[in-house]
């Protein structure tokens, strides 16, 4: 094991919203271990939930549908920094074509503010995806100085 992997926890999660609270609990524990403050841990809980909810809602629909679909949450516990990756091998999408995150759109669809919230709550958000190639979401939260 390299030094970089020393604080890595990896979870394989069923694509089922029942387990969102389980992921939040695990990630909150890791965030506390990384030294984040209570309010920062609250932000992380929302952000990881948003990323996982998007996988559950979008990754394995249509031709990619599968009752046994899972995705991976990788937690990297640093010193004063938590890095989270949410990885799926689902349908993927073109990140350039995300619907605009406006309250008006959200009122119509009752959805669509998840990415916007992630960006507002985390220090770093990266979404890598392409149709047919799955999706990787990176979320980073650092301890306030």
């Amino acid at each position: 094991m390299s030094a970089a992997d020393a604080g890595v926890i990896e979870m394989k999660v069923p694509c089922d919203p029942r387990f969102l609270s389980v992921v939040r609990l695990a990630v909150a524990g890791a965030a506390a271990r990384a030294g984040l403050a209570v309010a920062e841990i609250d932000d992380v809980k929302v952000a990881i939930s948003e990323a996982c909810t998007n996988v559950i809602d979008h990754a394995f629909v249509g031709p990619a549908a599968s009752a046994s679909a899972t995705f991976t949450v990788r937690i990297n516990v640093g010193e004063g920094e938590l890095r989270l990756e949410v990885l799926d091998e689902g349908a993927g999408f073109d990140p350039k074509h995300l619907p605009a995150a406006t309250v008006e759109n959200a009122a119509e669809r009752e959805r669509g503010l998840g990415v916007f919230l992630m960006q507002g709550l985390m220090d770093e958000v990266k979404i890598e995806s392409a149709p047919g190639s799955g999706t990787r979401v990176l979320l980073v939260k650092r301890q306030a100085r």
Binding site: V46, S49, E50, T53, V103, A106, A107, R109, E110, R111, G112, L113, G114, F116, L117
Partner: peptide, 9 residues
């Protein structure tokens, strides 16, 4: 999270 928020909006 945004699921509850979306419903409320």
């Amino acid at each position: 999270d945004s699921v509850g928020l979306g419903i409320l909006v």
